[in-house]
Design a protein around this nucleic acid. Structure first.
Length: 426
RNA sequence: GGAGGGAUGGCCGAGUGGACGAAGGCGGCGGUCUUGAAAACCGCUGUGGGGCAACCCACCGGGGGUUCGAAUCCCUCUCCCUCCGCCA
């Protein structure tokens, strides 16, 4: 949610920012409603002041005649007040309906561009791994090793679901544990959150009301399955006022993520790259407005550390204005090279959302004792998305015989498995 | 799922429809006293909105209603607690 006061004072800047995203928001309509709202508010508040004052006096009146006369006058005044109040409510509803659909403004440092083709390559780290044989894609490797089962996933649930088996399931769990432990060393507090949340929480993160069709929802209750840990972590401090000295606060959480992705049916159908359910370890930071830019760079570094320790060849992209997601004002993506399916896989997306989500969540902090509360800034970033990390591990560490070497950093969690060999009896 | 009880300011805890934005206590901040500290005493101590100065409006879990006037009465929803049932 954008700051109404800012829209009122700098409408041209707001329009310019939104047009960089390729969006023409109804700012003028918003301003007209806002002016009307304030006009009516001033009017009705004056009437209420009069009513309050007279009602107080009525309580002390002795003469029945004067008393009755005033009561009648106030009854009529009350009707006028009710009428104007109803108008104000309608206007506020209309105002809100418009405001909640307007995306965040891009940070001034974000490059121009209409879509992903204009994203800027920040750096590439490492070289594509060289093989003296033809590297296989994971959708061949995994089933051959008996650690990845598409047929049974489809049988249980439907298309785009799969089962990880044996060392495959264990490898994913090892990645989760290792990444969480690394994030703890990087200064994050590990969190375990609910995986289904109320609509208000989804709204706070920005996925509602606009992206309803991408979410799974309980059929009779207002409960939604999380599309990312970003959602419960944004909800964590809803309606709170935190002590400024406790910022920044860094949280890391493992959650499954559920996405209907109706829009993307037909894309990336092969393999485990894009499913309706996937696991992710997420980093999240609450910060002051002053620190958030620098903290985004830090979180990027923290995610890159994972890629480096896994020995990946990866690249960092900065998203252009037209490719930013709804709540973000600046975003970096990290992509790793998968030699089997021969593509760059987005394993992480790190965003500074500024005060956009905090405003929707009413999450504030007090800079110092006695000072007025301000909205915090929120930042989120994957560290990392599991299926794509699994793809990169399998495809980069494969050997000519189809076995896969387990990266050394994961050994403590693999129970002695250093090479994944074909499983028996699966 | 069934029965009952509750929800008040940072916390605890009062509150007969008009004197309550709300007693009292705790905590916090400032001051007096003191060489310093403690104690004692005095004062201040919520959020949002409109004007953006004085001031005004709203908020006592959420929403709706009764009334000239609601923390206080009515309806409804949510959440919490206790007991029973069921379960991991």
């Amino acid at each position: 949610m954008l700051d109404m006061e800012w829209i009122r004072n700098k409408p041209d800047e707001v329009k310019a920012g939104l047009s960089r995203r390729g969006i023409e928001a109804p700012i003028d309509r918003l301003l007209a409603l806002d002016a009307e709202r304030r006009k009516l508010l001033t009017e009705v508040e004056n009437l209420k002041a009069e009513r309050n004052q007279t009602s107080k006096a009525i309580g002390k009146m002795k003469q029945a005649e004067e008393r009755e006369q005033k009561i009648e006058a106030m009854r009529q005044l009350g009707e006028r007040i009710d009428g104007i109040d109803a108008q104000v409510r309608d206007i506020e509803q209309a105002l809100n309906d418009l405001a909640v659909e307007i995306p965040n403004l891009p940070d001034p440092s974000v490059p121009d561009g209409p879509d992903e083709s204009a994203n800027v390559l920040v750096r590439t780290v490492g070289e594509p791994k060289q093989f003296d044989f033809e590297p296989q894609p994971h959708w061949d490797l995994g089933p051959a090793l008996g650690i990845l089962d598409f047929e049974r996933g489809v049988r249980i649930t439907g298309s785009r679901f799969y089962v990880l088996k044996g060392a495959g399931a264990r490898l994913q769990r090892a990645l989760i544990s290792w990444m969480l432990d690394l994030h703890i060393r990087q200064g994050y507090m590990e969190m375990y959150t609910p995986f289904i949340v109320r609509g208000q929480t989804v709204f706070a993160a920005g996925q509602l009301p606009k992206f309803r069709e991408n979410l799974y929802k309980d059929h009779e209750e207002d409960l939604w399955m999380v599309p990312t840990a970003e959602v419960p972590l944004t909800g964590l401090h809803m309606d709170e006022i935190l002590d400024g000295e406790t910022l920044p606060r860094r949280y890391a959480a493992y959650t499954p993520c559920f996405r209907r992705e109706k829009m993307s049916a037909g894309r990336d159908v092969r393999g485990i790259k894009r499913g309706h359910q996937f696991d992710k370890v997420e980093m999240y930071t609450y910060s002051t407005p002053e620190d958030s830019s620098q903290l985004l760079e830090q979180m990027l570094e923290h995610a890159e550390e994972i890629c480096r320790q896994l020995g990946f060849n990866y690249r960092v992209l900065e998203l252009c204005a037209g490719d930013l997601s709804f709540s973000a004002r600046k975003t970096y993506d990290i992509e790793v090279w998968a030699p089997g399916c021969e593509e760059w896989l987005e394993v992480s997306s790190l965003s500074n959302c500024g005060d956009f989500q905090a405003r929707r969540a009413n999450a504030r902090y007090r800079p110092e004792k006695g000072a007025r509360p301000r909205h915090m800034h929120t930042l989120n970033g994957s560290g990392l998305a599991l299926p794509r990390t699994m793809i990169a591990v399998l495809e980069n560490y494969q050997q000519p015989d189809g076995s896969v070497i387990v990266p050394e950093v994961l050994h403590p969690w693999m129970g002695g498995i250093e090479v994944i060999q074909p499983e028996e009896q699966v």
